[in-house]
Amino acid sequence: MNTFSTYSFFCCSLLCIGLLASSVNEVHGQSLLDDLGPSELAVHPVYATFKDTRIINVQSNETPGQNVMHFVIAHRFGQINEGAYALWGLDNASMRMAFDYGLTDRLCLGIARSTFQKTFETSLKWKALQQNSDDSVPLGITFYAVGMARGDSTFAETAANRTFTNRLSYTYQAIITRKWSEKFSTAVVPSFTHRNLVEFIDNAHDQWTFGAGGRYKLAQRISLNCEYHFLLKGLKESAQNSLSLGVDIETGGHVFQLHITNSRGMFERAFLTETTGRWRDGALFFGFNLSRVFDF
């Protein structure tokens, strides 16, 4: 008897659970979407931390995708404080042409040429770590290595010094980025630059700089960018820290970058270690970049 009543109790419970389940099903039935379970790609690598492969002067974490050629024409005009005679620097433009090719979605090879010091560059950029949307990886880390060769005939004081190796310099960077929100991203960029020949005898061949940059999106296709590079000891006092402010405007396949900076050169050795302009003197340069991608 006792076992029977246990059975009936068990069965009644089952019945109740069954009815309950069906009623829950009906309530739930308002949204079958819930029955699909967790969404695919709810966790994904963070994309578009910056609009372009550069923040202003310095590289961002972005690389062109696989088989994509990223072409940049960059202009840097003369000093703004030259005044009306030189149309506030616009008469004196220097130019940099760069081709970056994405070997994979994370690895890219680049070549570039600047009119400033007739410099050639070859570079390699590797997105080693990508930030993840659920913060399981909170940061992105990208490595950048560039070799620069100046080609100007007036380089160095004596002809004997104008050897090929003396024309070379190298910069290595780790670009540590985080996209905090849809609008706000930051980067921390420690750089190491080696120059085979230095202009002043008391300058170090090896120079560390510590950079920081960021962007804030003002609108869907417009962002405000800034970057700063702090020189750690080694250079003469005349050397300045590089500070740049800019705006990125994206239009379909192009990104336009407008900026004001106290650095004249557009490659790493120049803006990291050879910045001489001072913001407070108005010794600033207006810059204008245009980038375009081509798919192969």
Binding site: G29, S31, L32, L33, D35, L36, S39, E40, L41, A42, H44, Y47, A48, P64, G65, Q66, V68, G102, D105, Q220, R221, E250, G252, G253, V293, D295
Partner: peptide, 26 residues
């Protein structure tokens, strides 16, 4: 006869990487 369909937008693959980024971002 009730149904539910769900498509993760980030799962769309484009011929051009930049198009995909703009599609998702803009």
């Amino acid at each position: 006869g009730r149904f539910a369909f769900r498509v993760p937008i980030l799962g769309f693959r484009f011929e051009k990487a930049l198009m995909e980024e703009h599609f998702n971002e803009n």
